[in-house]
Nucleic acid binder design. Structure first.
Length: 187
DNA sequence: TTCGTCAACATGGAAT
DNA sequence: ATTCCATGTTGACGAA
């Protein structure tokens, strides 16, 4: 079955019902029951004309159908989102009119789009942090190895005939060097 | 059948 | 009180 609004099943619009979906609590987040106001998938005019061939043989509860935006609608929404991630009421109204959608649909689309955008951003940051963690782990490993080598070097330098020494950083070449007590006493 | 995507919805918090 | 938004969830749908 092609996924466009013209083949979707319909519901009867209830006069006086608000566009606020939260007025119709339903099992599950998908909010869906007999009291559903308008089929979100359709423009009102289409709903009226198509409603005649809807038998509603499901105890008055039509199966939930999923709207697929047309390519044109998606393109315009994406373009609009690219320009601005949020819409003021006038822009929302205008865009809805242009797309032949309800303002609620445009609003929901933008909410979902922002969420997807944020998710993508978070995933990218996560990847970056993972790589960073990897490089830090590697750096830590190398530094530990270096410390081990330096410790071994220090042990080698120390002998019963030599003075105790300490490891110091040369301020000029920034290399660690072994300094004996005798050397230090000369400074 | 399973899984990913996404429109629609619920809810709670912030702003007005 | 109302509106808007972020976030989490649900369910329809297509693809693998």
């Amino acid at each position: 079955m092609p996924e466009n609004s013209t083949c979707l099943e319909l519901t009867i619009s209830i006069p006086g019902s608000s566009s606020n979906s939260s007025s119709f609590p339903s099992p599950g987040g998908g909010g869906y029951n007999m009291m559903r106001e308008l089929d979100i998938n359709l423009v009102p005019s289409i709903q009226v004309s198509n409603n005649n061939n809807n038998n509603n043989n499901n105890n008055g509860v039509p199966p939930r159908k999923k709207l697929r935006l047309t390519k044109q609608q998606s393109f315009l929404l994406e373009e609009s989102f690219r320009q601005n991630h949020t819409l003021n009421p006038k822009e929302k109204e205008a865009l809805a009119m242009q797309l032949k959608l309800r303002t609620r649909q445009v609003e929901v689309w933008f909410q979902n789009r922002r969420a997807r955008s944020k998710l993508k951003q978070t995933e990218m940051e996560c990847e970056y942090l993972k790589r960073w963690f990897g490089s830090l782990t590697e750096q830590n490993r190398r530094l530990k190895k270096e410390v081990e080598e330096l410790r071994a070097m220090k042990v080698g330098v120390l002998s019963p005939h030599t003075c105790p020494s300490t490891l110091t950083m040369c301020p000029h070449c920034e290399r660690v060097t072994t300094t004996t007590i005798r050397d230090e006493s000369r400074i």
